[in-house]
Design a protein around this nucleic acid. Sequence first.
DNA 1: GTCTATATAAGGATAGAC
DNA 2: GTCTATCCTTATATAGAC
Lengths: 197, 197
Amino acid sequence: MARISNTKNSTRKEVITLAAARLFREKGFSATGMRDLAGDVGVEAASLYNHIRSKSELLQEICFRIANAFTAQLNELETDQKTTSIQKIEAVVRFHIRMWIDRLDEVLVANNESKYLEEPYHATFMNERRIYVRRLEMIIEQGIRDGQIRIIEPYAVVLTLLSAVRGIEFWHRTKKNISAAQLEESMVANLIGGLKK
Amino acid sequence: MARISNTKNSTRKEVITLAAARLFREKGFSATGMRDLAGDVGVEAASLYNHIRSKSELLQEICFRIANAFTAQLNELETDQKTTSIQKIEAVVRFHIRMWIDRLDEVLVANNESKYLEEPYHATFMNERRIYVRRLEMIIEQGIRDGQIRIIEPYAVVLTLLSAVRGIEFWHRTKKNISAAQLEESMVANLIGGLKK
DNA sequence: GTCTATATAAGGATAGAC
DNA sequence: GTCTATCCTTATATAGAC
């Protein structure tokens, strides 16, 4: 099970961006100061501006990098004509789980702090999210038509699946009790197979 | 299906607290100014301090009111010895769904902004959450022992169930397409019964 | 590319008149 | 209980020396 990691080189800007992701996650975008960030990176606040344009730019970088990762995986998945709807949904859920496990800081920022994006970035981000949800809905609809998925509201299913994996945020604090693999299998079992024996 | 509403009288402080919940939800705790809040309530910022002690106190009020609501429901549920584990879990999930539908502002603040609680309130809040999760785990464990629930990691199940309902946040923006009742039934069906036909 | 110093704005909260 | 005026701190970002 390959860990999903950042493919970018460790440029100065990249170091700053990942430090920002961590701080934005822990303290929130608004409560994170450029002095906090500079301290973590090891420079004075003013020096940051030789590498980035603004605090907002860092948020944009983080949010769209994550949005693109999810969209790219879905694109790749949909080129495969042989998988069934259930298999596609399961693949999407597993990808989300791994992203929440491997890239928690960035994923949480994209989820919780994207509201601080300036226009037009915020509108673009929300629109991309809407389209992504719609594409997943269509996979569910296809599965219902094929008789593979029970008759259920596709929109509600997508909301449920995408939100369910957010529980991983809390798992990160108590990793010892259960492994990443166990977590993934249990979540998939619950979401695809239900609880009843 | 009774709507879950606030039982408190509409005192001045209550009006301020609910306005704060809405602002904290929309803009985040840190980005919400006392001048914003005062504007929504219809007074000057300084006047707020005749009713509240601080901005932090408002956050405490919101977070613990919600925590208490969830704990109270679970207490009530556990006094009933006749219900099965599956029925108890379903009742908890339905209660969460209705809280997310009926009291979105407060529930979102308790989820996303509780990290801004000052000590010792933050520690207390997190501890109460931990205990609540543990109590739900025990219901799952009982269901597994009874052969009613499939063999699955109880902790992962609880994280999944509690997070899944957070999708309701997005439903609030597009209510028209699907009713609250439909949403509730689809979510319960997915979480308890799974997706496969 | 990093620093010190600073401009400019906004934050929470208080004092004291009415 | 509400107001105006203000204290004090902190915020993002820039200017200009090195």
